[in-house]
């Protein structure tokens, strides 16, 4: 009993641990909801691209004294639209175009950061700093994450239809272009909100792994989303608490746990598939 207390409750008696847990849960939930749409739409790379591409936006925002969030949002949208434009006007495939655009923008950001003095720390952008979250950061992350989560949960059927069958979405009069644009804007906002706490590497993982886990384990969309959120929440809680005890970096630990869950889902999902095949074979 006593050991259970030290294991689970003791870490949370510290203020900074409470904040770390809260922020990773907020990010974990919003990213896992997103990951469902990204995985289904084939946009998994989009999270990767946008989270790298916002670096010059952060640097420029610092120079011009505009909110970091705004600078990052503009950079993210430039990345998304530049990718779309180049894909439509060249023979290069989308993934290659995207790779060029985001690595180019990331490199530009790196160059800018070496030339100007900012309080944007590269290491924090890459790896995040969950344990060093301030109260304002927490509020900002909470507001953005909640807004995005609520919008996506409310509009999940429209977004799901947009991923599954955009032609039908258009035929029944849904604003397809707006859905696609909206998803991108929300994605950019989420990444920006998550970056400070989680860092690029965690955000990218969180935007893919939960959706992939849900995809492997569920047969319906709502089921997929529920499993994705659950997997994300479990790995965030476990990751935060374990990192306290073994004194490891929180974000990477969460990613490792998600990867482990993915492997489990892969093994488990396969078994269901075989079972199905047998059922068909025997009758």
């Amino acid at each position: 009993m006593d050991s259970l207390y030290t294991l689970l409750v003791e870490p949370l008696t510290y203020d900074f641990m409470q904040r770390a847990l809260l922020v990773s849960l907020l990010i974990g939930v919003v990213c896992s909801v997103f990951s469902c749409f990204l995985v289904l739409k084939g946009w998994s790379l989009m999270g990767d691209a946008i989270s790298h591409a916002i670096l010059p936006g952060l640097a420029a925002a610092f120079v011009f004294g505009i909110p970091l969030l705004l600078g990052a949002l503009i950079a993210a949208l430039i990345c998304a639209f530049l990718t779309g434009f180049l894909k439509d006007h060249s023979r290069v495939k989308e993934d290659a175009v995207m790779g060029i655009v985001f690595s180019g923008m990331f490199a530009l950001g790196l160059v800018m950061l070496t030339k100007i003095e900012t309080d944007v720390h590269l290491l924090h952008i890459l790896f995040g700093n969950v344990l060093g979250i301030s109260r304002t950061d927490l509020v900002q992350t909470a507001v953005i994450a909640s807004i995005c989560t609520i919008i996506m949960v409310i509009k999940r059927r429209d977004l799901m239809l947009f991923c599954f069958d955009p032609v039908h979405a258009g035929v029944i009069g849904l604003p397809v272009a707006l859905l696609s644009f909206g998803l991108l804007v929300l994605l950019a906002m989420t990444i920006v909100a998550a970056l400070k706490a989680a860092g690029i590497i965690l955000v990218i993982a969180m935007l893919i792994a939960p959706g992939a886990i849900g995809f492997l384990s569920a047969r319906s969309f709502d089921g997929m989303m529920m499993i994705a959120v659950m997997a994300s929440v479990v790995s965030c809680i476990a990751g935060t608490i374990i990192s306290f005890h073994i004194d490891a970096a929180t974000a990477p630990l969460i990613v490792v746990i998600q990867a482990a869950l993915f492997m489990i889902a892969l093994a488990f999902g396969k078994r269901i598939k075989q079972h199905d095949d047998q059922a068909i074979a025997t009758g």
Partner: peptide, 28 residues
């Protein structure tokens, strides 16, 4: 107007049930 797509246009791995697909016709 309703449109029935060509079979190749659909991602058959998508996690939706038959009744969910038909329900999509009702969204409007």
């Amino acid at each position: 107007v309703a449109y029935v797509p060509q079979t190749e246009e659909v991602d058959w791995n998508f996690p939706v049930l038959v009744k969910d697909v038909v329900m999509m016709g009702r969204y409007g």
